[in-house]
Design a protein around this nucleic acid. Structure first.
Lengths: 219, 219
DNA sequence: TAGATTGTTAATCGATTAACAATC
DNA sequence: TAGATTGTTAATCGATTAACAATC
């Protein structure tokens, strides 16, 4: 009832929306005009109610019997996730992972635009990575403020993570995407998304060994 | 009661265990001998019961008042996650992301060992990436069987993902770590872990815009 | 001993799933 | 129209958190 009330979106829903989006873009390229939750769910190995609830949150209206208009649904998800307002970001740490992220062009489809890369290592400063020059970390603070950057991507080695995170916060960064395997302490008003490859691998290998114990995969 | 019963481990717990492990290794390097759940929770921004429940699942016993032995706890987590049985894996797709994963030496701490890399692109075959020669994808099937490889890492472009996933399954791969933004269809007895960077970014940017709406970060 | 912490059971919370009415 | 599908409320399930007894 209150227009200012903030709806908290369940994180699992947030993580599924880009999957639907990607799937729908593929279907659209096959000239599909309408789609039902049943079909989406079947193809992605989910259940239809879940897909419907997820989609509902973006605010789109479907038509009983027909389903949703594919174009409209794609736009609705993209708009809901804020993919049209270009999210400019700075990346710090041009090691292997940093370079990979700089080289991954797919990000701008999701509104993410890595506009500059920084490093503290003087031997890396000045080199080009995927057409972007690596800048000295000393310039970070100044450029964040000048370019009003709000998102920082952290791909530095574990031992420097906390220090660089603090630099980011102090410079005015509001959201940090942390790829290092370390927890960072930042103020409550800064959003942190921790990308932990070790954690994902733990899930994978544990599931595999659980399957082994159950004798499920000795076909 | 039944020794053959498989305990299903909650995925959130599985994802937190590597975080505790990393944190504990850092504390050990500071010569810390004992640690309580309260301390772990405080430092990592969690609550102590949650840490205790997570840790309990690895089978370790703590001592009231003292907490846990740091060494013992590190071992208990590593053992539980199967980090001592070396998990050999093959990687397919040596683009930017594939190269980054090959270059990330930290994986073997987690028991993961990427023993070979494959590509279908003949211009990439034969080149060296981080001391490992890129092999022709045609050799994949044969080598999986000869080396009894069970884990496949998928870092190919979106359009080839399903095809390569099928090749992996057919070759005998039991667990696939999929870094492409596409859903893959595989038999039920194959474990799939989907690493979706777009999904993570969606969480980050949506949280940021929700904070904006709430006026929380205009300090 | 006193008290901090573990270990464990019960209560709460939130996400998923089921049920079913509305509708094109 | 009949029936598939949406939209929505209620039931279930699982993870988190609270409560408290056991213990070193």
């Amino acid at each position: 009832m209150n227009g200012r009330k903030i709806k908290i979106i369940p994180e699992p829903t947030l993580r599924r929306l880009p999957i639907y989006h990607h799937y729908l873009v593929e279907r659209r390229s096959e000239m599909l005009k309408d789609i039902s939750c049943t079909k989406i769910a079947d193809d992605l190995g989910l259940v239809s109610v879940q897909v419907r609830k997820d989609i509902e949150i973006t605010g789109i209206k479907g038509r009983p019997k027909l389903g949703y208009d594919v174009d409209e649904l794609i736009d609705s998800i993209a708009k809901f996730l804020g993919w049209q307002d270009n999210n400019d970001a700075f990346l710090v740490g041009t090691g292997n992972l940093g370079k990979a992220l700089l080289g991954y062009d797919g990000f701008n489809k999701y509104g993410l635009n890595i506009v500059a890369a920084f490093d503290r290592d003087k031997t890396k400063v000045g080199k080009k990575v995927n057409n972007r020059e690596v800048l000295d970390l000393l310039k970070f603070r100044n450029m964040v403020q000048r370019m009003k950057i709000r998102i920082g991507i952290l791909t530095v080695p574990a031992q420097s993570v906390q220090e660089v995170a603090e630099l980011m916060v102090e410079a005015g960064i509001m959201a940090i995407w942390n790829f290092a395997p370390s927890h960072i302490n930042v103020p409550d008003n800064v959003v942190v998304q921790h990308e932990n490859l070790a954690a994902s691998f733990a899930v994978l290998s544990k599931k595999l060994s659980t399957f082994d114990q159950a004798g499920l995969n000795h076909d």
